[in-house]
């Protein structure tokens, strides 16, 4: 069964056309001008249950935009999405139970109260049984070292600590699908390695479907079987990771291939 089915998905943002300076701002007040920015231009793909997919693309390619639509918090401008057979936007609450999401640059931790309170809240929201909750928290504590800062409010954590806590928060209800948008920014190499080891483990054992974006090729390469490359809102490449090496030669690293690919596209 396909965990995710996306068909001809589009997203246009309305952006303000404002001339610079005070005069421009005043002019905008009187007659605002808008322009459509096409961030995702009709992409189609399926992800079977249990697959781990890397989502790759230059800055502004539309990766985060796509993930926001897949998680059901933003309505697409066109096309259809099915997550476990249901439309995530119209079925947001039901969908939210089945997914775990990390936006690396955002935090779901409560800013002014201890991190432990956030986890307590999550336990209630997702109705996690005591046993499962305890087991998970123990596991995360080992891998992510949470106990160091559980009693601190989120605002007092370092970037890496915060991201570690956020990752645990996204996983605590054992979601069958994970959307990870740059989940390892600011995390040191040792912890990063542990995290990817752990993700690989749940992907293998629990058949958790993973969709991951990162600008760190090594991460993607170590975890993901399949690669989707987005460029300017369109799919440039969608195949198993190995295919890329077949096409571009075994000698090169993923990073080198991607750099070449982007450069090449820009010229043509």
């Amino acid at each position: 069964m396909n965990a995710i089915e996306v068909h001809d998905l589009k997203k246009n943002y309305r952006i303000v056309r404002k001339e610079p300076g005070i005069a421009g701002s005043l002019k905008h007040l009187i007659s605002p001008r808008y322009e459509e920015l096409s961030a995702v231009k009709g992409i189609t793909f399926q992800i079977p249950q249990g697959e781990s997919v890397a989502f790759l693309g230059a800055n502004g390619a539309g990766k985060s935009t796509t993930i926001k639509m897949l998680t059901g918090i933003m309505q697409p401008s066109g096309g259809t999405i099915k997550v476990m057979g249901k439309d995530p936007f119209s079925d947001r609450i039901r969908n939210a139970k089945k997914i775990g999401v990390v936006f690396g640059q955002k935090t779901q931790l409560w800013w002014d109260i201890p991190v432990a309170e956030t986890f307590r809240l999550l336990k209630k929201i997702y109705e996690i049984p005591e046993e499962q909750y305890r087991k998970n928290m123990e596991k995360f504590s080992n891998i992510l070292g949470l106990q160091e800062f559980m009693d601190q409010p989120a605002r007092k954590l370092s970037l890496g600590q915060r991201v570690r806590a956020d990752l645990a928060a996204a996983l605590v209800h054992d979601p069958p699908i994970l959307f990870l948008d740059e989940p390892t920014i600011g995390i040191d190499v040792a912890v990063k390695q542990k995290i990817y080891g752990f993700l690989k483990e749940i992907n293998r054992e629990r058949k958790t479907t993973i969709l991951l974006t990162s600008h760190d090729m090594k991460d993607l390469e170590s975890l993901c079987d399949r690669l989707i490359i987005l460029e300017k809102g369109e799919i440039l490449f969608d195949d198993p990771m190995d295919r890329l090496f077949e096409i571009y030669g075994e000698g090169l690293s993923l990073e080198e291939i991607i750099i070449e690919l982007f450069e090449h596209r820009r010229v043509s």
């Binding site: 939210a96 936006f103 779901q108 997702y126």
Partner: peptide, 13 residues
């Protein structure tokens, strides 16, 4: 700031 995203990601009204 975009933090509303995190509210909407929860299975609650």
């Amino acid at each position: 700031k975009g933090d509303i995203i995190l509210d909407l990601l929860k299975p609650v009204s």
